[in-house]
């Protein structure tokens, strides 16, 4: 299996400063990969470039074999993004939200079945505005998965979630990974990263500091992150 995400010498300038300063990265298909680093390290910028929301200033980015930004329409069909913003409309019901995004993706979906997958089938006719943070995040996962993406990108997905919703969320991500999906998780939380992922890139000041193996001891990782704080 080749790399599903390839990043070479990626630079993204923002308002005069380099938010990403020469990133090299490879993520294999079926891998659960974490982007670790303190706030302002460039995690969100990298996620936004990978999910086609931001155009690279220079460098090469390929996602699922398609080059960014030129072939972003193809990339969009193959990725799903869950961030701390759920990208949902409060004035629409859960079912209406999903049906709307299904129209945008041009796919036919069974809304009820998808809602059942994230344990929200009993609330399908309720307005999202009345949902708790945890329910919104679950619906956001359903939104990100409705077109069966090859890669699920998570950007600080558990920010603002309580413990129960957090562990529900982890279970869902684990389940997805077990089915062969590729996961990219951006987080500042080492525990979360080592629980969900097998490898991690430590970012600092827009550069990749080290690549960590999270399967074994996490003491080395702890130390690497500690140095940055």
């Amino acid at each position: 299996m080749g790399a599903i995400i390839e990043v070479e010498k990626l630079v993204r300038r923002f308002a005069g400063t380099k938010a990403l300063d020469g990133i090299d990265l490879k993520v294999e298909e079926g891998e659960a990969f974490a982007l670790l680093g303190p706030n302002g390290a460039g995690k969100t910028t990298l996620v936004r470039v990978l999910s086609t929301l931001l155009r690279p200033t220079s460098g090469k980015v390929r996602v699922c074999g398609f080059a960014l930004p030129e072939e972003r329409e193809e990339v969009k069909k193959r990725i799903g993004l869950v961030s701390h913003n759920p990208f949902l409309y409060n004035e629409l019901t859960a079912a209406e939200n999903l049906a709307f995004f299904a129209e945008l993706y041009g796919v036919d979906i069974d809304v009820e079945a998808l809602l059942a997958r994230v344990c929200l089938n009993h609330r399908s006719e309720d307005l999202v505005g009345a949902f708790s943070q945890g329910m919104r995040q679950r619906l956001s996962i359903a939104r990100a998965l409705l077109h069966d993406p090859k890669i699920l990108i998570l950007d600080e997905p558990t920010a603002g979630l309580d413990l129960q919703s957090r562990s529900d969320f982890y279970a869902m991500v684990k389940d997805l990974h077990a089915r062969g999906g590729t996961i990219v998780l951006a987080t500042h939380n080492l525990e979360e990263a080592s629980y969900l992922c097998t490898r991690a890139a430590v970012l600092n000041k827009g550069k990749v500091e080290t690549i960590l193996d999270l399967r074994g001891e996490t003491a080395g990782a702890e130390e690497a992150l500690g140095r940055l704080r």
Binding site: K76, L88, Y105
Partner: peptide, 9 residues
């Protein structure tokens, strides 16, 4: 939510 629209194809 605009980003949600722009994420879609």
């Amino acid at each position: 939510t605009l980003e949600g629209l722009m994420l879609a194809p």
